[in-house]
């Protein structure tokens, strides 16, 4: 592999990696608030992309379609928590996790009924003229994906570190009982976490649709990759989730490039899960995992 080829793979890897990162971040937000692994997380990504397609087809400019799709999916996340998760509060974590599996099937089927089985495109945010970097090229959309991912991650950190509401969310994940004694409403923190989690993943979905299209079934694989990324970085650690997502995306594309046979890209998905398995064998708490996984 020449350096330019390497660069090309990296560019491609960070694009998908950013989406894994945002999905992993979605897992992290919900996990930290509730200890629930939300297996419908990938569907939020898919819904974000497809909703934006519809809004754009209805005449909304891209920026508006982006914001609108994120807002709509955030609402879906909140309603999902209220209707599916909250009633199971006393039934325990496992029941809640199982209901997320069911919800993912329901959302996928619903999406198929609304948008059909065709993969739908969205125009790139600003043109599709590739930019030359050395001998490799980078799509403007890749820069959008990277830039917006960075903005989301930094904003989220500022929210957690600087705002009272963000600190209240952290307090709930450290010690729910004590947080409630301080007057923090745990149920509102959970709702907020579901809304933010859905919004972040939906944003990922909108950004990636111009690159790889979106179809009703896309959420399943993206969700699993995002989950792998969250585990890779250490479940519960937002910075780890972002690192895990980017690392997974890059490793995945590099592995395809390194495999000598033709049709190697068919093994792309296997690479992600191979990495997940290795991490679970060697370091089950993930690369930066502070909280123990058994806690779930």
């Amino acid at each position: 592999m020449t350096f330019d080829q390497f660069l090309q793979y990296v560019f491609s890897g960070v694009t998908t990696g950013s989406i894994y990162a945002l999905t992993a971040l979605g897992f992290t937000l919900i996990y930290n608030a509730t200890n629930v692994i939300n297996f419908a997380q990938g569907e939020f990504v898919m819904l974000g992309g497809l909703t934006a397609v519809s809004l754009h087809e209805a005449g909304a400019p891209l920026a508006l379609a982006f914001v609108g799709a994120v807002a709509i999916v955030a609402t879906v996340g909140v309603v999902f928590q209220l209707l599916a998760i909250r009633p199971l509060h006393s039934a325990g974590i496992l029941a809640q996790i199982i209901v997320t599996v069911g919800a993912s099937l329901a959302l996928r089927t619903g999406a198929m009924l609304i948008w059909g089985r065709e993969a739908l495109p969205l125009p790139p945010f600003t043109g599709d003229e590739p930019i030359k970097v050395s001998e490799a090229t980078i799509l403007p959309q890749t820069l959008w994906v990277l830039g917006l991912t960075l903005v989301i991650v930094v904003t989220l950190q500022l929210f957690y570190r600087r705002t009272l509401t963000g600190k209240a969310v952290r307090a709930c994940s450290v010690n729910q009982g004590a947080a409630r004694l301080m007057g923090i409403s745990y149920s509102k923190v959970v709702l907020l976490s579901f809304g933010m989690s859905a919004a972040i993943s939906a944003a990922g979905g909108v950004m990636i649709t111009p690159v790889s299209f979106m179809v009703y079934s896309s959420g399943a694989l993206i969700g699993l990759k995002g989950f792998a990324a969250a585990i890779f970085g250490g479940l519960g650690n937002p910075a780890g989730a972002v690192f895990g997502g980017l690392a997974l995306g890059i490793l995945e594309t590099l592995a395809i490039g390194a495999l000598p046979m033709s049709g190697a890209s068919g093994y792309k998905d296997a690479v992600a899960f191979l990495i997940l398995l290795i991490v679970l064998f060697v370091k089950p708490q993930g690369l930066f995992g502070g909280r123990s996984v058994e806690k779930a």
Partner: peptide, 20 residues
Amino acid sequence: QLFGSMTVEENLELGAYCRR
């Protein structure tokens, strides 16, 4: 039942949460 991973000042801030 302190918020152990948060700073002293943040703990105090959260104590004042109900009076925000």
